[in-house]
Design a protein around this nucleic acid. Structure first.
Lengths: 188, 188
DNA sequence: TACAAGCTGTACTAAACAGTACAGCTTTTG
DNA sequence: CAAAAGCTGTACTGTTTAGTACAGCTTGTA
């Protein structure tokens, strides 16, 4: 095997940063080169189909992180209250350290919304369903569990929007605190 | 005065449709011409500064609608419960008939987020503050009123995201129903 | 030390882009 | 009915875009 100066996952991480900061559509190849510090040659080496490939790789990586750190723990948890606190903490830390941007939410708008509709839907369905199942195990009936899970995920996503609009990340943290409190109240 | 075949407000309405459907950044001038049915000449006649002018005009028009139909009624209402129901109905009807897209929320991402940061912040601040003031008049203390107002606006915005991801507008309508129920519960 | 294979910068192409200029059209006003 | 003024299509410019081609570099392996 030859050298591996830059690994694909590193490239994906750098791309994710650019897409979060500038949005997918206004990240031109020249901007990506500059901000991610990756040349055109490397970019097309790792992502032969261009920007679409890059976006897919970024969404995959984010989706994997949520699967491992959020959805799977929700599904396998035995203590519902503990799982709720772990989820809110993980999610809050994640978005605060990622410029308060959810790339899946961003993909519900713009040109390529159809291209990634499947992945985007799966992300939200997985999250809502995993949380709903946990709430059901915590004592809620199926309907209430699903409605509460949906409302909570919506509140988190809306909280991100408002905190970006306000330019003040404490707003998002406040939303996350109340999300946790609300879920715990339902479980007691 | 000479003829007025196409008025500026009509042009703005057409532009809003294009921006909602395709996103601001991927609406090129040729796409706008085609989908809005307005030629290049007319576009630069009405919006001399180009796309930035167009976006500003669209945001202004949407902002005016919300001011007149949502924020002002919230501020001047005497019956809090009635005002809450009026707001949820107006907002639900608005977004359902506008492809479940909030253009102000869309402007918190992408290239021009800084250009319109002021307008975007004002929109959310006006909404949250008007609703918070109403809840306070309805008996909540200042802190609870503000938190609930913020959470509700977040839930609405997040509901739009999830309904677009699900490709099923009944999800958003469900969120709006529970928003209304929750607010009414706080007022009783 | 030499080969193999992954990685990378540079130069290039064709298409799409935002924005300009302007002649000419249409309709209201006097 | 003529003039004024708003509106509109077309042709154009220079720039930026995504994507390609490829020579050459770097490093692990034999």
């Amino acid at each position: 095997m030859p050298r591996t100066l830059l690994e694909r996952p590193d490239a994906v991480r750098a791309l994710a940063g650019v897409f979060r900061r500038r949005g997918f559509e206004s990240s031109s190849l020249s901007v990506i080169q500059q901000e991610a510090g990756i040349g055109r040659g490397s970019l097309y080496h790792f992502f032969p189909e261009g920007k679409t490939d890059m976006a897919r790789a970024v969404l995959d990586q984010v989706g994997d992180w949520f699967e491992d750190e959020v959805f799977a723990p929700l599904r396998s948890a035995t203590d519902a209250a503990e799982a709720v606190s772990a989820m809110t903490k993980a999610v809050a830390d994640y978005f605060v350290s990622r410029e308060n941007v959810c790339l899946f939410a961003a993909m519900t708008l713009g040109e390529e919304k159809e291209t990634f509709a499947g992945e985007v839907k799966a992300y939200f369905v997985d999250w809502v369903d995993a949380l709903a199942a946990l709430l059901q195990r915590g004592g809620l009936n199926a309907g209430d569990a699903h409605e509460n899970a949906l409302d909570v995920v919506a509140m988190i996503q809306g909280g991100l929007i408002i905190t970006r609009a306000y330019g003040d990340e404490s707003t998002f943290l406040g939303v996350m605190e109340r999300v946790e409190r609300r879920l715990l109240a339902h479980l007691s």
